[in-house]
Simulated assay, not measured.
Amino acid sequence: MTGLCFEHAFVINLDHRTDRWAKISENLAQVGIVAERFSATGVDDLLNDRPSMALKHFLQRVDGSSPSAEHKLQTTWACMRSHLAIIRLARDAGWPSVLILEDDCEFEPFTPVVLKRACEQLQGREWAALYLGGTLKKGGKKAAISANLCEVSRVRLAHAYVVNASVYQQILDEAPESGLPLDWYYSEILQASANTLMVRPVLARQRLFDMSDIEQVERKPKYKTRQALQRWWARMRYGRSSY
């Protein structure tokens, strides 16, 4: 797909999760996004790269004590390392932006036309990150600035987002020291100081009925009338656009 706000895209995928790579490859082909596979950092790859004590204490406060606490700590840290490795690659290569996807991402059929329009509307604007999907948390803002873009804050999840070169170094410096999971760092720290945008309607969601490598639970549908109506209206308005 041409005319986008990124030239490079990567899918974070653990080597043994060939099932996820197959699913997202098929989905990306359907919506015209070309992305390379990025071998994810696994727990066994961390070696002496230990999670920070601040992150451990944060997860203990949020989740409490559980038999899976150590697993979540290690996988959360490994996940951050994967994202940061792509950002470091983009920085070193001098790319103006990069699209980062997690392998449980799934794009809506109307992605081609909406993404192209959103990228056109992005031209001439200052921005730090562009979310293609995510969850707006309590206290966050969402203000329309064009037909297909919103200014946002306190957006959680990091399964599909574009990072601008203007914040590569900030993320690399701050995220590991923040004591937060990466998506929390973005929502609570980066978005408070950097102009963050989101495409509307939402293009990318986390795949349902897929076991989370971090949470170790299967994602199940939660029916919300407003979201269902928004998706229905978007599909009616934009259709299954070709690229």
Rank of each mutant, 00 (worst) to 15 (best):
G3F: 13
V43W: 10
W127R: 05
S39G: 12
F58E: 08
R125C: 05
D19E: 14
W232F: 15
P176G: 01
A128I: 04
M211G: 01
T75M: 13
A158Q: 01
S242E: 15
A54W: 12
E126Y: 13
R207L: 11
G140D: 07
D63N: 09
V199R: 05
K141L: 08
L172N: 02
A69G: 06
R235M: 12
W77A: 00
V34A: 15
W233M: 02
K137C: 06
P67A: 08
A93L: 13
A234E: 00
L190K: 00
P176V: 07
M211D: 07
A204E: 02
S52K: 08
V31N: 00
L208C: 06
R205S: 08
V98G: 00
A78Y: 09
F38R: 08
A234W: 12
W127L: 01
D92F: 12
A158N: 08
A194V: 00
P221R: 13
V199Y: 07
V43Y: 04
V43N: 03
T111V: 06
S178I: 00
L4W: 03
W233L: 07
P96G: 01
I171L: 05
L172K: 03
W21Y: 15
A160Q: 07
L157I: 11
Q230Y: 13
E151G: 03
C5F: 10
L136Q: 09
L4V: 06
I86G: 06
A40N: 04
V113W: 09
S242I: 14
L229D: 03
N27F: 09
F107M: 15
L203S: 01
M53E: 14
P96I: 09
M1N: 05
R240Q: 13
R81H: 08
E108Q: 15
K141D: 05
E106S: 08
K137W: 12
S25F: 10
Q123E: 07
Q206P: 06
A78S: 05
G179L: 07
S25Y: 11
D63H: 12
L180S: 04
A144G: 03
P176A: 05
F110R: 03
H57E: 15
S52L: 02
F10H: 14
L197G: 04
S65K: 12
C150Y: 15
Q206S: 00
P201V: 09
R91C: 01
Q74G: 04
W77I: 05
V155T: 02
E218K: 14
L149D: 04
S242W: 13
L182K: 04
I100T: 07
H8K: 15
A192K: 12
H8P: 04
A144Q: 13
R237N: 05
Y238S: 04
R207N: 01
A118M: 11
L172M: 02
V217N: 10
R91Q: 09
G64R: 10
F107D: 01
T76G: 02
F107W: 13
W127Y: 09
R154M: 09
T75P: 02
